[in-house]
């Protein structure tokens, strides 16, 4: 009925002559990152709206973002502090435990919802075209925003449990930024893996549980690794989740003096994870949305 469509080469020539872009092709990394940066407003809108929406169906609303961590801390205190007595080697156990529960809680939920960032948002992915890295990144930011009240609670608990403000407290926000960067990197990695094989999503809760008990949330790792080979203790103390807790404790708890090594290691992890995460996620960009 109309002229036959051009052949492959002619089509490419035509597209190039008029400056048309190949849509499905994965853009070069630099362009991808630039595109992601120009969507920062979108990421913020998405994250803030989602964190606001979190408790909107509950009658007590946002108060839950305060109650939830308090109740968790209380239940862990009863189990570990009172029943099991894991407080050995820790002076301010309430302070120690609160930091563990809240800081690890954020990492845990970023990773479990980050894993579903692409597969759980098919509506958005199939409707609108944008760099898909927006989704896992926004999961991380959503969680940080939603937990702002919990971070404030943490500071209040510090004061209540007898800590007194020091200059080191100013490092607390820096510790949270390092944590955020690390877990966003991990969310990017988890999102692509889960998109490739949805079955992996079932292993994530298990992995998180394992990490919860080996990262020093409830008890001081060094206290328990004393009898283990040095290498094992090293790995357990310098894995990112343990470090996240260590540096927050160093900034807020008097019994943990500041040390340079954990902060440097944490910054190194942040760099490795965010760069690795972005590159790993970007390499799968052309496949998201199919299936």
């Amino acid at each position: 009925m109309t002229a036959a469509p051009p052949g492959t080469d002619a089509a490419r020539a035509l597209a190039e002559r008029y400056g048309l872009k190949a849509l499905a092709a994965r853009p070069p990394l630099s362009e991808y990152l630039r595109d992601l940066w120009t969507r920062r407003g979108f990421i913020l809108t998405l994250s803030s709206s989602r964190s606001e929406a979190r408790y909107q169906n509950n009658q007590l609303g946002r108060l839950w973002s305060v109650f939830n961590p308090m109740l968790l801390i209380l239940s862990y205190f009863l189990i570990f502090g009172v029943l099991l007595g894991t407080r050995r080697g820790v002076d301010n156990f309430i302070g120690f435990l609160s930091i563990g529960v809240i800081v690890f809680g954020v990492s845990g939920s970023v990773i479990s919802s980050g894993a579903r960032a692409v597969t759980g948002n098919t509506g958005l992915v199939r409707a609108l075209r944008f760099p898909r890295a927006v989704l896992p990144v926004s999961v991380g930011i959503t969680e940080m925003l939603a937990n702002l009240p919990a971070f404030v609670i943490l500071v209040v608990l510090m004061l209540a449990s007898g800590e007194r403000p020091t200059w080191a407290w100013l490092l607390f926000p820096l510790a949270l930024v390092l944590q955020a960067v690390q877990i966003i990197g991990m969310a990017l990695i988890a999102a692509r893996i889960t998109h490739g094989s949805r079955d992996v999503a079932n292993l994530i809760p298990l992995l998180l549980r394992l990490l919860r008990y080996t990262s020093g949330v409830f008890f001081s790792i060094s206290h328990y690794t004393a009898n283990l080979p040095a290498a094992v203790g090293y790995v357990m103390e310098y894995q990112p989740f343990a470090l996240q807790l260590t540096i927050v404790r160093q900034s807020l708890l008097a019994e943990y003096p500041l040390g340079l090594l954990p902060w440097v290691a944490s910054a190194a992890w942040a760099l490795v994870l965010i760069v690795g995460g972005l590159v790993f996620f970007w390499r799968g960009e052309a496949s998201y949305g199919r299936g």
């Binding site: 190949a22 499905a24 509506g123 409707a127």
Partner: peptide
């Protein structure tokens, strides 16, 4: 391959945004 001018906007019945 598909080439296009700019970023096409799709308006579909299933284009669910954020329902909550």
């Amino acid at each position: 391959e598909v080439w296009a001018d700019g970023s096409p906007a799709l308006l579909g019945v299933n284009a669910v945004l954020e329902k909550s």
